[in-house]
Design a protein around this nucleic acid. Structure first.
Lengths: 128, 128
DNA sequence: TGAGTTACTATTAAATTTAATAGTAACTTG
DNA sequence: CAAGTTACTATTAAATTTAATAGTAACTCA
């Protein structure tokens, strides 16, 4: 998703909201944290096959700046840093679930395959 | 937003759903059609300053393929083609409104400026 | 002592999205 | 008769996102 640098380029809260949790990675990170609660950096990475450090670190930074994810650092060695959703982050979850259900329902209606299954969301392929 | 060619690359209905209406242009087109009902190509363009023909035409095509927008063509000259939301498209609107409200509420909380106003959405900057 | 762990950053390249520009047929209006 | 309208397509370029790869400090474990 295109994220304009200048807030002026965003025309409405809808567009702005979508930049906060839309996009390929943000929604997945939020889902993982919603499911697991608190996770350290390496665990998030393990949960999300295919993500690279560069992308994960950058995405977490954005989520933190937008007050959706909270970062807590422990001064140990090897380093330990834990991430969890903020209150604002938690408030996104129901929206994501709604999208999940909406999408799952229409997909079932139009297709026979069952590719759309995911442990990260609360969708299991048999939602009413 | 990254839209994978192969459905296999999409991991869950949430991600899939976001490819259907997330992104810079799709949500705006849906908003405009939700507000105005039926519009012809040139009117959609006028409603969305800054969009180019290449992008508008391509985006409409995707929305049509995903059964969110319906296209009706009249054989007149000059050509007339009208677009409106399908039933599925209409069912997205409440989700977009929810995002709009969520985003608007948090934005007001965190910022003094009032840039986030838009005639396209049902948000007017003073939402409770 | 060497390898592994951790949470990153930096750099470069590939892929994708968005933008800019020009062109088209066949009519209508001035 | 020239210019404007309509709904696009095609092409090229710029911007942005995503991916791939390597490197880091300071410890622990074998």
């Amino acid at each position: 998703m295109y994220k304009p640098k200048l807030e002026k380029e965003i025309r409405c809260p809808l567009e702005y909201g979508l930049t906060l949790f839309g996009g390929k990675w943000k929604s997945r990170i939020i889902c993982v944290l919603a499911e697991k609660g608190t996770l350290r950096y390496s665990s998030i990475r393990k949960e999300m096959a295919n993500i690279t450090d560069a992308v994960l670190a950058a995405t977490l930074k954005e989520l933190i700046m937008d007050d959706i994810v909270k970062r807590q650092q422990f001064d140990e060695i090897p380093p330990r840093v834990e991430y969890c959703l903020t209150e604002k982050g938690l408030s996104v979850v129901p929206i994501l679930q709604t999208i999940c259900k909406w999408s799952g329902a229409y997909h079932k209606e139009n297709s026979e395959n069952t590719l759309l299954q995911c442990q990260k969301c609360d969708y299991n392929g048999s939602m009413e």
